[in-house]
Design a protein around this nucleic acid. Structure first.
Lengths: 113, 113
DNA sequence: CCGCATCCTATCGGATACTG
DNA sequence: CAGTATCCGATAGGATGCGG
């Protein structure tokens, strides 16, 4: 079986920065947030409802991490009560596009076995 | 921006089994093992040398997890001293094929920012 | 050469309560 | 509504030493 990429020539598999970013987007809630925001904009409360089981702490923390990574866009309107919308940046959409097939593959595999 | 997949219709984003498998293949050492074994067979000691910084405990543990998931194949020849070879199953190769682009994307992103 | 067992610590992540 | 603050248990993962 041939390798998927021209073997490791283009990839520094040990790079810690790359690892960190991968950890962020594949983390328990990071993955769900990116998939939920793929192709649409959601308010904080909508996002929370769309991801059953997530705690407020983890949702905020995950969103802040992904925002710092430049994957998630936070748009706050200064009204009362507060109105905050989350969406994906172009880079975030790229990430979602890479993660969706991975999630689908994993789901298909566990359905059989 | 249109969604990457026909929105969440085919994907149960909350499925714990799917999550677990994703965690395994994207884990700190799981990712590196799959990429290193992509397209070639390595002995345990070779694999350890190919992944700088990995402890024996984590390497074994990771390999056993991936083997239990049906992604890694362990072939032990009953000689002394022991000779054990690791390679990818077809499913493991599929996983590597999905992970390599993700790793490359992450690497390209951290190089800029 | 390959792997198991034990200890130890840092971090992840859940529960709860409080604020502008 | 959209967070912040604090506590606390579980686990990931590193260090070390032993065994066939």
């Amino acid at each position: 079986m041939p390798p998927t990429i021209p073997h490791l020539s283009a990839l520094d598999t040990g790079c810690p920065h790359m690892r960190l970013l991968v950890e962020h987007v594949t983390s328990k809630w990071g993955l769900l947030v990116l998939l939920q925001l793929d192709g649409r904009t959601l308010r904080w409360s909508e996002l929370k409802r769309a991801i059953p089981g997530v705690s407020e702490k983890m949702l905020i923390q995950t969103l802040q991490t992904l925002e710092a990574d430049g994957l998630v866009l936070r748009a706050a309107r200064p009204v009362v009560p507060p109105h905050v919308e989350y969406s994906l940046t172009d880079a975030g959409h790229d990430a979602a596009a890479l993660l969706a097939p991975l999630a689908l593959w994993a789901q298909d595999r566990v359905r059989e076995g």
